[in-house]
C-alpha cells in the first residue's frame, strides 16, 4: 500500500475513466483495433491499479473473491448463452446475422450484432481473471 496522496487521488479520479475506456474497447471490438481481450485487460488493470495503490485489503473489499469467481464463471457462461441464441433460432452455434440479429450499418457501433455482447462476457471474464491472478500473486508472499 502506498501512502502517496497524489497517487491515490489520481487513481480515484482515473478509475472510472479507465473502466469506461475498457468498456469502450470491448464494445468497439468490431470497428476498431482491440476487442474484448484487450478491453477486458484494461478493465482488470483498473482494479489492479486500485489494489496496488490502496492495498490488497481495500482491493478485495471492492472486488471480493466471491464476486470474481462469479464473474469468471458467468462471464464465460454469458458467451455460451449468446452463442446459444443462434441455436434457439434454429441456426448453428454463434450464428449472428444468419439468426436474424440486426447488424446495422457497417462502421458504426451497432454493426456487430451479437459480437459486442459476446465480447462483454469475454471482457468481464478477462478482467476478473487478471484481477484474480494479481490478487493471488500478491497474497502468495511468504
Amino acid at each position: 500500500m502506498m501512502k502517496d496522496f497524489v497517487l491515490k487521488r489520481i487513481v480515484i479520479v482515473l478509475l472510472p475513466f479507465i473502466q469506461m475506456y475498457g468498456l469502450y474497447v470491448i464494445f468497439h471490438g468490431h470497428v476498431s483495433p482491440g476487442g474484448s481481450f484487450a478491453g477486458g485487460m484494461i478493465l482488470g488493470l483498473g482494479f489492479v491499479a486500485f489494489a496496488t495503490v490502496f492495498g490488497l485489503d481495500r482491493g478485495r473489499q471492492m472486488l471480493p473473491e466471491k464476486v470474481t469467481t462469479l464473474t469468471e464463471s458467468y462471464g464465460t457462461l454469458w458467451y455460451g448463452i449468446m452463442g446459444m441464441i443462434g441455436i434457439f433460432k434454429g441456426f448453428p452455434f454463434l450464428a449472428n446475422k444468419l439468426a436474424g440479429i440486426d447488424v446495422g450499418v457497417p462502421g458504426t457501433l451497432t454493426s456487430g450484432g451479437l459480437i459486442s455482447w459476446i465480447g462483454l462476457g469475454v471482457g468481464i471474464r478477462v478482467a476478473s481473471t487478471i484481477t484474480t491472478l494479481f490478487f493471488t500473486m500478491m497474497e502468495e508472499k511468504p
Binding site: 469467481t69 462469479l70 469468471e72 464463471s73 458467468y74 464465460t76 457462461l77 455460451g80
Partner: peptide, 10 residues
C-alpha cells in the same frame, strides 16, 4: 461451460 460454472458452487 459446465467446467466454467463449477467454481461457483465449489
Amino acid at each position: 461451460f459446465v467446467a466454467f460454472v463449477l467454481p461457483t458452487f465449489a
